[in-house]
């Protein structure tokens, strides 16, 4: 029994691992260092060239733990274009994978014609002022103090962050 249980766990583990590999692949959009830990001050354990394919293991803050061939390490999240969304909970990647597998996602799905309500240039051009709409909108507007209470309820605290400079890159 014990042995069977153990094998079962291994199988489950392998399955989750396979699912993770399938669900989270990515491509390096620039050449990057691979780090031992999710920190730019940690040891460099390798490098990845632009265009390299990686499997995403999990995310922590602005970092993704990835594997590529026999290399494994951490790379900056913003340097990897993922093929699927990644789990936002570090350490809960298996749960995240399961959610991802079952989450209702619709990329690429062709929307049925019935019930479609698009918003194209012509719609915008022909639009007429809705006084009712503005009145409704006004009713939903809230004060700064209500917003602060809402933030506090969620455990959100304001952080000092300076604006980001323009990287001056041409596309």
């Amino acid at each position: 029994m014990k042995t069977q249980y153990g094998i079962g766990l291994i199988l489950v583990g392998a399955l989750c691992s396979a699912l993770a590999m399938a669900a989270q692949t990515g491509t390096l959009i620039k050449s990057e260092s691979l780090y031992a830990a999710p920190a730019g001050t940690s040891a460099r354990v390798g490098s990845l060239s632009r265009g390299a394919r990686v499997s995403v293991i999990k995310r922590q803050g602005g970092w993704l733990q990835v594997s590529s061939g026999r290399s494994q390490g951490w790379v900056r999240l913003l340097s990897v274009r993922t093929g699927a969304a990644y789990s936002s909970n570090a350490g809960a990647d298996v749960v995240g994978m399961a959610q991802m597998a079952t989450r209702k996602r619709q990329p690429g799905q062709i929307v049925a014609t019935a019930g479609v309500r698009g918003l194209n240039e012509e719609d915008l051009k022909e639009a007429h002022y809705s006084a009712d709409g503005i009145a409704q909108l006004d009713r939903y507007s809230i004060s700064a103090s209500v917003a602060r209470s809402f933030a506090a309820q969620g455990g959100l605290r304001a952080v000092s962050v300076v604006y980001l400079p323009n990287p001056q890159r041409e596309y």
Partner: peptide, 14 residues
């Protein structure tokens, strides 16, 4: 902005 917003809501309501 309110004029513009009102027009947008005329095309797509809340």
């Amino acid at each position: 902005g309110q004029q513009l917003a009102g027009n947008l809501l005329g095309a797509a309501p809340l």
